[in-house]
Write a protein that binds this DNA or RNA. Sequence first.
DNA 1: ACGGGTTGTGCAACCGGTTGTTATTTGTTT
DNA 2: AAACAAATAACAACCGGTTGCACAACCCGT
Lengths: 338, 338
Amino acid sequence: MMRKRAITLKDIAQQLGLNKSTVSRALRDHPDVSRKTKDEVKSLAQKLKYKPNAVASSLRHKKSNVIGLLVPQISYFFLPSVIQGIEEVVHKNGYNLLILQSNESYEREVENLDILIANNVEGILASVSRETKDFSHFKDVIEMDVPIVFYDRVVKDLDTDLVLLDDTSAAYNAVLHLIDKGKKRIAICTGNTNLLISRNRLEGFKMAHKNRGISFFEEYIVSSEWPEEAKSKTMSLLELPEPPDAIFAISDLNLSGVMQAIYAKNLVVPKDISVVAFCEEPFRNMYHPSITAIQPKGMEIGRTSAEILFQRIKTSLYTESDPRVIYLDGDLVIGGST
Amino acid sequence: MMRKRAITLKDIAQQLGLNKSTVSRALRDHPDVSRKTKDEVKSLAQKLKYKPNAVASSLRHKKSNVIGLLVPQISYFFLPSVIQGIEEVVHKNGYNLLILQSNESYEREVENLDILIANNVEGILASVSRETKDFSHFKDVIEMDVPIVFYDRVVKDLDTDLVLLDDTSAAYNAVLHLIDKGKKRIAICTGNTNLLISRNRLEGFKMAHKNRGISFFEEYIVSSEWPEEAKSKTMSLLELPEPPDAIFAISDLNLSGVMQAIYAKNLVVPKDISVVAFCEEPFRNMYHPSITAIQPKGMEIGRTSAEILFQRIKTSLYTESDPRVIYLDGDLVIGGST
DNA sequence: ACGGGTTGTGCAACCGGTTGTTATTTGTTT
DNA sequence: AAACAAATAACAACCGGTTGCACAACCCGT
């Protein structure tokens, strides 16, 4: 790579007849350097368009100023909001984000974690892939004392901070809302049961039924990982001899599939069927009537998990305060779909 | 930062009574190292959970294996698709992505570019912020011979590769479609005119009118940067004594605002008003009826720009082949909204 | 047994900043 | 004017992996 060699401290030092260490200190306003030297150094640096080499600096003092972000998939509605929130906090703290996608693959998750470590990240924000059942790769990281905070799709029993929605009670409230609107045959389109999130949301669904003393139907519980799957499974639901009078979609992905099925069957929401979902605000409103939805609060989850991470990074790790588990409330916003 | 010291080559070397250079070569299967030594080194490395330090390696041979990605904003529909496409190619090539967001701010764009350079990225994929009018920061990068490819929101006259939609002709086709459906009063909700993209799409709008020999109304041309703004401007349009009978939204952000206005006015699509937009497939279908849309082909733009970038990176830069401008066709997908 | 060619490993410099220590200059004090 | 302190800058080692070169050990043929 015969790239034009970049300007280094040494270049500046030579041109001014100084030592590179002096130049380094001058640029960082170290008190040991005289005003005059500082001025000379700085103006020459500017003239030569000197750009410090973060890699070298990082190697020396093991501060990379980079936070690693592990996401299952960037696409769709929820994660961009989370990233937005994280980015805000990370930038505020003068750090950058190295974002790696597992694409829901366990192997890539492991690989990505290695990459983050190799790049000297000072902390990690992670949401696990659907496939992941074994968490030893995270344990390794924890043993290296790289702080890690899980968001949204968390891992329990790992002695780390967690930031997540209070899924069970949010789902509980949503389903309660449906029941109290008089719905008797509520279906749920849940997700991969590897994920705690899916199990918790289903749990809320069941609790609401139990609490109101009505029973739910096993055949109304379907699970899906992609919109297409959600669509076809919803189609089947709607073709049952006794189709549901309400559907609860536990993610925006599932919601989009559910709605496509409803459109395909020419059903009118909420007259023929009610819909409730976990769904971010801007997207809830894309539907007409708008969807009654639990706000997954992506932005807030992102912000909070990043804040927590920086607390770990900044207070010496060895103060070892207990791991924090932060539950955010997923508010139910009533739309026209119920 | 009193972190538990990570295992280094030196540690392995000492334990085996070797020199770290030999260990380094052993791990990389250098032919000079004997089978026996390699086996010993590798098994000890595994046992100690040795993780190579990419920072040190990068400092030495100036290959960071990182591609810098400059995005205006991750949120919303289009960019996640682009990132998805980029990520695919970048991963395939064994590289990682350092993603930085300008948040549509010129200053952050400049700052982010510096960060990418400081981190020794081997190439840059960039989409400019709305604010940016001066491009000298990009020139600096080009002078350092760091290959850069612009995608979507490109900068011309900079002697770099560009990957973008053929916006003018896509817009032209979309508006032609409206005209041929008998629409006479077509409004356009365009974007910030700093962006070539906005100007080109508007140009297509005008060309279609001209080509069919009908005139457009200046007051039907509104521009918006956010959904809320799009909503309020559309509201005003709809309140005109002679409201438009069709609206063309040049982005998914604008589309969502336009639709909200239409819903608020209780208009029925397409009976009362037709809608056409630049909009990714999954989102087009969230509306009912589905929106007739030009596919912005985010995934493809991402993939293509990354491929082009790697071609630059891999073939020596000094082969200086002419910059390539790649136009993708934005197919018009007919939905129920027209 | 000796010269020439492999094979396997060590040594030391290097990448570009950073930092502890030392050396030199300047200024202050009595 | 000697003695010492403060200010300023140079020197060298270091971070961890990489690489050109030196070098020792070994094999072969003659």
